[in-house]
Write a protein that binds this DNA or RNA. Structure first.
Lengths: 137, 137
DNA sequence: CCCTTTGTCTATAGTCCCTATAGGTATTGC
DNA sequence: GCAATACCTATAGGGACTATAGACAAAGGG
């Protein structure tokens, strides 16, 4: 059995975050030691590792909850799991596309300033006047 | 003079957000009508448009506060404004890079499932077992 | 002038996903 | 046996809003 600190070290999830997951029902309340401290089994370690991995991939807690529920039913079709993954992939691609637009515009703005003083600073000017922008955002 | 709703329509910033900005000191408290409603001048419209543009470009409220302070001092050097823009550009590039890593991994995961049931679903398997991953994240 | 609709007011709570703090108790290692 | 470390609960904070409730104001038509 692992203490919460050991579980934290093994998974890379911070101690308060583990307690927070328990509080919100993402993790079940674990066994307790004589002195009322949490004690975790290997199954719980695996569940948390799953959560951490999914969080690292950017999945929302809601999605993760759904995936965990699914994984408890090995005989169900895996269309839902695939849908969640595909949706998230689409979200990420969308985010990348939007960030790339921002990148282009910001590059132009950040490298377009050859002024010396705020008076004629292209950064300030560009923010003041949207019409100076070359790309949509 | 504009009402808060007109200001909202002209800038694309939602009414509660405008009130929130006022509350946090990003916008000064405007004049009031006889019936205690907010009335905005053109200067205030421009300030909010600046904020909106900067927010759309992903700048934090803190950065925007700094930029607004700077723009009130036309005679100062614009090194700080350039620094803020360059830092933000770097942050965005970093975000893009990390999202692209996630994209690669998620693409692999989301399109790697040829199972029918959760039992042998590659999505679930991949999340359970980090060792299956090909790229870091 | 009245009525209705739409807009605005304040104050407060909720969102997401944690993170930090305070004040106290357990466990561990020497 | 004791100090250092880890753990406990409960609560508040953070960033940037968003939503809600209950009440007052403004604008347009008859």
């Amino acid at each position: 059995m692992l203490s919460i600190g050991e579980l934290s070290r093994k998974t890379g999830v911070k101690v308060p975050t583990i307690r927070y997951y328990e509080q919100t029902g993402l993790l079940a309340a674990p066994e307790r030691s004589g002195g009322n401290q949490r004690r975790y089994s290997t199954a719980e370690l695996e569940r948390l590792a799953f959560i951490k991995h999914a969080r690292d991939l950017g999945l929302s807690i809601g999605d993760i909850r759904e995936l965990l529920d699914l994984s408890a039913h090995p005989d169900r079709p895996c269309t839902d799991a695939n849908r969640i993954a595909a949706n998230h992939l689409a979200t990420i691609r969308d985010k990348i596309a939007r960030l790339q637009q921002l990148e282009a515009e910001l590059d132009r703005i950040a490298n377009g300033c050859h002024g010396e003083r705020i008076e004629n600073c292209y950064v300030i000017e560009s923010l003041s006047n949207h019409a100076l922008c070359k790309t949509p955002h």
